[in-house]
């Protein structure tokens, strides 16, 4: 038995919108502690990890660990039918007696917050997905940058009109985003800035040692679809690891995107 009740339906809509273009099919893993997902993109260059803790739901019941394979575009289509303030309650009551996961379904109910007499029920087919789960150990990063998510999104968008890759360098000077293309080059430097009116507008740079890595802008731009989830983004860089671009989901968890760098052949 799985029962979830999420009063802020827009949150789940935003989560699906942020990952559906990167990952087609994924297993949602449910346990007593929460709802999680880990999936690679089809070229195995990027990985998304989602966590929604059980405490963040108004109601959460998961009797035993289960994995629900979903087509994320189909799930996003269904969630588009929900109003931003609708209450969303996905459930999977038949799990215990369903012989094969491939023929089972998830039921999703949207309850309109304004008209209590309007209830919409959807049923979506689940898929049998043979996905591999990668172990991501806790790691020390050479530099961690926290900045406004809208600023990061703007930089990625602007640079991608000039080049295909971005070099992210953290030095004492700040964090530098550089690209080059046929028409020329572009450099954007963000310095640490904590003297702002609101904490979410700050740029905070923690640097243990300078680091410089090259990434495909196409993926970075895809990650920025998570911008509506959080006012800030955290970018963790290490010369030995994929970059981690993290959007916190208020009081519930996070969406983390891991991207392998471009390396010298």
């Amino acid at each position: 038995m799985l029962e979830l009740r999420l009063v802020q339906g827009s949150l789940l809509k935003k989560v699906l919108e942020s990952i559906k273009d990167l990952v087609n099919d994924a297993n949602f893993d449910c346990s007593a502690t929460g709802f999680s997902l880990q999936a690679m993109d089809s070229s195995h260059v990027a990985l998304v990890a989602l966590l929604l803790r059980s405490e963040g739901f108004e109601h959460y019941r998961c009797d035993r660990n289960m994995s629900m394979g979903m087509n994320l575009n189909n799930m996003a289509k269904m969630l588009k039918c929900a109003g931003n303030d609708d209450i969303i309650t996905p459930s999977r009551p038949m799990m215990a007696v369903t012989p094969s996961p491939s023929c089972s379904k998830v039921q999703v109910r949207f309850t309109c917050c304004f008209a209590q007499d309007k209830i919409a029920d959807f049923e979506m087919k689940l898929m049998d997905i043979d996905s591999e789960h990668l172990g991501i150990p806790e790691a020390e990063y050479h530099a961690i940058v926290r900045m406004p998510s809208s600023e990061f999104s703007r930089i990625c968008k602007d640079l991608s009109s000039i080049g295909d890759t971005v070099v992210i360098s953290v030095t004492k000077e700040g964090v530098r985003f550089s690209t080059r293309g046929d028409i020329g080059t572009a450099n954007v430097v963000c310095r640490q800035n904590t003297t702002v009116d609101k904490p979410e507008e700050a740029t905070i740079i923690e640097m243990n040692e300078p680091v410089s890595l090259t990434f495909a802008l196409r993926y970075m731009n895809s990650f920025t679809k998570a911008t509506p989830l959080s006012n800030t983004v955290t970018i963790s860089l290490s010369s030995e690891l994929p970059v981690v671009v993290e959007y916190k989901i208020a009081e519930m968890g996070y969406v983390r995107f891991y991207l392998a760098p471009k390396i010298e052949d």
Binding site: H44, E132, L134, G135, E240, L241, A260, K262, I263
Partner: peptide
């Protein structure tokens, strides 16, 4: 020449 690394180069299967 730069080549695109894969995620599996860094993280192993659980």
């Amino acid at each position: 020449i730069e080549i695109q690394a894969g995620i599996r180069y860094y993280y192993g299967k659980v």
